[in-house]
Amino acid sequence: MNSTNILLKQDTEANLDDRYLVPGLVRGLAILKLFDQHHQEMTISEIAEKLAVNRSSAFRLIHTLEHCGYLRKMSQKTYALNSNVMELGFNSLSKSSLIDIATPIMRELRDQIEIAVHLSILDNTHIVFVSNVQSNGPFTSNIHIGTRWPAHATVIGQLALSQLSEAEVIARYENFNDWQVYSERTPKNLDALLKRLEDVRQQAFMISWGHFNHDMAACAAPIYSQATQQISAILSVSCPLSSYSEAEFSNEVSKNVVAYADKISKFIYK
């Protein structure tokens, strides 16, 4: 199903009368949605093919979007998004806090996988939970806003630390002596932590299967700022080990966590 049909289907499902739809506007919005990190520039022919319209129709739509400042012509007859696209939502989003933006999306994730969802930030050598959405099942998480955990011992903290340079990590842990060990996977000293972070930097997400809280599973994925491309926060989920099989948690739950972390990242501009 192409992007135009998806948008039309969404409007129908929302009980809108098709007689009031403006097909040209729907197709114009669909063009803007075609551009992403893998398709930063496209030709008229490529856009026409993806929309399943003829080249003449695609040209008129592209010309209109270019005239309005939402597309710009590049070299080699390609087009790319222009800065006006960013301005559509930037003014309101830039005034919204991370928690305001993330919490509704966290609720969507909770409804999808039915377990607790958390938002954390790095604070020196600890992570701090700044937002939580309880599961809609029988389990109630004992993690509260303001709960602090040692960053070196948790997948959340290790992901957050992984964006720092080795020198920055050393500086933070220079006078740190509380290398409490929770399992065989807990770094026991600074050298072990630095080695772990080398591996973490290659990972899109991390899973703990009873490695911090022995009867709990957790999955964490980074949320990035569009402005700096640095990690702004960590999205994570947690549940008793009995909630999912380890394979299910590692494969299915992790995909959802990464997808929703990416979804939040699209709206973070600080």
Rank of each mutant, 00 (worst) to 15 (best):
N5G: 13
L7D: 00
L8V: 12
K9H: 07
K9M: 07
D11H: 09
D11E: 12
D18T: 13
D18G: 08
R19Y: 00
R19Q: 07
Y20C: 10
V22T: 10
G24F: 00
G28R: 14
L29T: 12
E41F: 04
I44M: 02
E46K: 05
I47V: 14
E49N: 08
K50N: 04
K50G: 00
A52N: 11
A52Y: 01
N54P: 12
R55G: 07
S56G: 09
A58E: 05
A58L: 01
R60P: 00
L61T: 04
I62D: 04
H63A: 14
T64C: 01
E66G: 05
G69S: 06
Y70W: 06
L71R: 00
S75F: 02
A80F: 02
L81T: 09
L81K: 04
N82W: 06
V85P: 08
M86I: 14
E87L: 13
L88A: 07
L88H: 08
S94Y: 06
I101Y: 06
P104W: 05
I105F: 05
I105E: 06
E108T: 10
E108H: 08
Q112N: 10
I113W: 02
V117M: 03
V117Y: 06
H118L: 14
H118N: 13
S120D: 01
N124K: 15
I127D: 01
N132D: 05
N132W: 00
Q134Y: 01
S135C: 04
N136H: 06
P138D: 13
F139Y: 15
T140G: 00
S141P: 01
N142C: 02
H144M: 10
I145R: 08
T147V: 03
T154A: 11
T154M: 06
I156T: 13
G157E: 03
L159P: 12
L159C: 05
L161Q: 11
L161V: 11
Q163C: 01
L164W: 06
I170H: 07
A171E: 15
Y173H: 10
N177H: 14
D178V: 04
D178P: 01
W179V: 03
Y182H: 15
Y182M: 10
R185L: 14
K188N: 05
N189V: 02
D191R: 15
L193D: 13
L193P: 14
L194R: 15
K195D: 13
E198G: 03
E198D: 15
D199G: 13
D199Q: 12
D199F: 08
V200W: 02
R201E: 05
R201P: 06
R201I: 04
Q202I: 06
Q203C: 14
A204K: 14
M206V: 01
I207V: 15
I207M: 08
I207T: 15
H211N: 09
H211I: 04
D215A: 02
M216A: 07
A217G: 14
C219S: 13
A220D: 07
S225H: 08
Q226F: 00
Q230F: 00
Q230T: 10
Q230M: 04
Q230S: 07
I231S: 08
A233E: 06
L235S: 07
V237G: 04
V237I: 09
P240F: 00
L241D: 03
S242I: 04
S243T: 15
A247S: 12
A247C: 03
E248F: 10
E248Q: 15
S250T: 13
S250C: 12
E252Y: 06
V253G: 02
V258D: 04
A259L: 11
A259E: 09
Y260T: 08
S265A: 02
K266A: 11
I268F: 03
I268Y: 05
